[in-house]
């Protein structure tokens, strides 16, 4: 009854229209980037070709030549994939220990991990440059993988912890009765059970690695430079290259935006550290 009383004119007509308008408005800049990527550089700045133009793939075909796109993209893929894998390899055992064998200090350790995430990166900019140059690690894939892992480790441990907590302890205990050792427990019982949670944690970690734009810009020059660095380096195209810049930007964000659609829900869990369900 209450629902009938509630459905005013606004709910049936106004709400969908307004909601769609807001959705389209927020999506518009991405759509615009995508649309511009099919215009030639000359057409992209002419008002008469704002919406109607002859689409061309030339910007995408020349992406390698104009920007060396694939080198940066390869770096992004390599660093993000390895960083995600490494973070999980370190994070899964840690989260397992905290969820199934908590001690009095577990809560404090989790809190402390989170607090490292809040340390402003800029504060340690120079020491990082100094150290990595001294150790010969500056501008190497290894360094970027390590840094990306470390900045995402707290969030990954937290997310895995909240997933693992949901698994009944009895199942793990039953494994112990059967004489399975700790590695067996993780491999045979925990990972298959928490597979969905682990996968979405990995996906979110990958997205954060891909979009990272402080260390990847400040700790690289050419060899390990990622897409963030590529785009940042072409920040002011003097208006001449909107077409090609749009194409390379679309190629830089496309895969991630699509991946993001699949893990919106995990985002809530990950970024609020399980405090909003």
């Amino acid at each position: 009854m209450a629902i009938v009383a509630q459905s005013s004119k606004f709910s049936t007509f106004g709400r969908p229209v307004l909601a769609w308008a807001v959705g389209l408005l927020f999506f518009f800049p991405i759509f615009w980037l995508f649309l511009t990527s099919f215009k030639t550089d000359a057409d992209a700045v002419k008002p008469e070709y704002l919406l109607f133009f002859t689409p061309t793939l030339e910007n995408y075909l020349n992406m390698t030549q104009n920007y060396d796109y694939w080198r940066f993209a390869t770096n992004s893929v390599v660093t993000s994939v390895f960083a995600t894998v490494f973070t999980l390899v370190v994070g899964i055992p840690a989260a397992y220990a905290m969820a199934f064998n908590p001690s009095r200090g577990t809560k404090d350790i989790l809190m402390w991990m989170l607090s490292t995430k809040m340390l402003p990166a800029a504060a340690v900019l120079y020491p990082m440059t100094f150290l990595t140059k001294g150790l010969g690690l500056f501008d190497t894939h290894f360094l970027i993988i390590l840094v990306l892992s470390l900045i995402n480790l707290p969030i990954v441990v937290w997310m895995l912890f909240t997933y693992f907590k949901e698994i009944p302890k009895d199942i793990i205990e039953a494994g112990k009765m059967d004489g399975v050792n700790t590695w067996g427990e993780i491999k045979e019982i925990l990972i298959p059970l928490a597979w969905g949670g682990i996968a979405s944690t990995a996906l979110l970690c990958f997205i954060f690695c891909w979009n990272e734009a402080y260390w990847t810009v400040r700790l690289t020059t050419t060899d390990a430079a990622t897409l963030s660095k590529l785009i940042e380096g072409n920040r002011a195209p003097e208006g001449l290259f909107f077409g090609r810049l749009s194409a390379v930007s679309t190629a830089a964000i496309g895969p991630i935006v699509v991946l993001g659609w699949f893990c919106q829900k995990q985002l809530v869990q990950g970024l609020t550290f399980g405090a909003v369900k």
Binding site: F26, F27, L33, N211, V217, R235, L245, S246, V257, W261
Partner: peptide, 26 residues
Amino acid sequence: GIVRVLLISPFFVMPAVNAVLWINMI
């Protein structure tokens, strides 16, 4: 569902692209 997907998309855009897109093309 579609409106949700449209709305959440900006969050996954890398900050560098966000800035280049807004300051230049918009």
